[in-house]
Amino acid sequence: MTDRIDDDERDELQDEDVEEQDHDDNDDAGDAWKPPTELEWRKVQRALKRANKEAENLRRNSETTNEAEKEETEKRIREEAVTDSEARWKPIVVKQAARAALAEAGLVKNPNRLLKLLEMDDIDVSEDGEIDGLDEQIRDFKKEYPEFFGRRSPRDVDGGDKGSRATRDKGSAALIARSLTGGR
């Protein structure tokens, strides 16, 4: 850093020497364009170097600012994408899990009525697929709508032994055949 200061001081001293020489040479003032003097040239070059350094520093600062803004924007976009994807698949996953849980709880009627009553905001799906909050809602459904739940009874069942169709008598010929064969 001290080398830079020494260089600047040396340049200024040289510029003063050159400036004195230039004042002596500037006696003939004409309207024609004259190239810059050595002093003017050095001043312009130093100013240009300073401006270039300052511009480089501003670019670096701008790049770091742009990178931070870029990272912030990417993070916001990722969060929006996650939210959008959850909004799409969460109801599907929850409804399928609810159908299975309602069937397991003994639902005897159509589950669509109860599925419409699910509070999706109260149900969370973790990354590993665990569904939290569904069991509580199904317990509440069982309390509020007991007519939807119960044991399913098989249809058309009575206590009589009807036997299989193969062993049923089909007529007198079958009775005679069974008696001759010993009931086989």
Rank of each mutant, 00 (worst) to 15 (best):
R76C: 03
E72P: 00
P91Y: 03
A47R: 10
G30N: 11
E69F: 14
D31P: 07
V18N: 05
D31Q: 10
A101R: 06
R99N: 03
Q14P: 00
N52W: 10
K43N: 10
R60F: 09
R113W: 04
A68Q: 11
E71G: 08
A32R: 02
V108I: 14
A32P: 01
A87L: 08
D121T: 12
R113C: 01
K53A: 15
A87R: 12
P35Q: 07
K70E: 14
E127Y: 04
K116A: 10
A29D: 15
P111R: 03
E40Q: 11
M120W: 00
V44I: 12
E63C: 03
R76E: 14
E20V: 11
V18D: 07
E63T: 11
R10F: 03
A97H: 05
W33E: 05
H23N: 10
D27G: 13
I92W: 03
E67G: 05
A97D: 06
L117C: 02
R113Q: 04
E54L: 09
V44P: 00
D8N: 08
E79Y: 04
Q96R: 06
K70H: 13
R42N: 12
D25C: 04
V82C: 03
V94H: 02
V94C: 00
A29K: 13
L58F: 08
E127D: 11
N61M: 10
R50S: 12
N66A: 15
Q14M: 08
A32L: 09
K70W: 15
V125M: 02
E72D: 12
V108Q: 08
P36G: 02
E69Q: 13
T37G: 11
D121E: 12
A105Q: 01
K53D: 15
Q45D: 14
T73N: 11
S62I: 04
